[in-house]
Amino acid sequence: MVAAAEATRRYLLLAAGDRLAALEARVVRRIVRALPVTPLPGARPALLGLAEFAGEPLPVLDLAQLLAAGPGPPPAFPVTVVVRLGSGASAELVGLAADAALDLVSIAPGAVTPSGEGIVVGEVALPQGTAEVLDLSRLAAP
């Protein structure tokens, strides 16, 4: 019982279009009201643009586009989730634009059904619905 509890990880549950996504909480640095973003010409579609966060430049990605999500209800409180990817000198702050930050949930690794592609590594059934479990380290893969 204790071992099972220790094995669970905390995830931030996000809404993006018609999808739910679970993002490991340890990479989350801040959740803020959607930051204003300046689009960049020549960007791949998922890059909404650049924002300024705490005096630092922040590339902001559209989570719904990364998930190829369909349209969802109009977001009442859209957010930018600031995440830290990588470590040491190669660490990078990235913003994820999402429709809402819904909850913090605990998920045991055994509850995740491996599936998906891109940044999605699996699915998990939660009381809020089926969520796609994200591995953002894949964002840096070529």
């Binding site: 020549g42 300024e52 990588g86 990078e92």
Partner: peptide, 28 residues
């Protein structure tokens, strides 16, 4: 100037020295 990270380079794949902020505005 902050060196561009791997994620930024992947999604904005053009030659750049990095990112910076001037007067609370981010720039390439």
């Amino acid at each position: 100037v902050q060196k561009p990270g791997k994620v930024f380079e992947r999604f904005w794949p053009h030659p750049c020295l990095g990112l910076a902020v001037v007067a609370s505005e981010a720039l390439v």
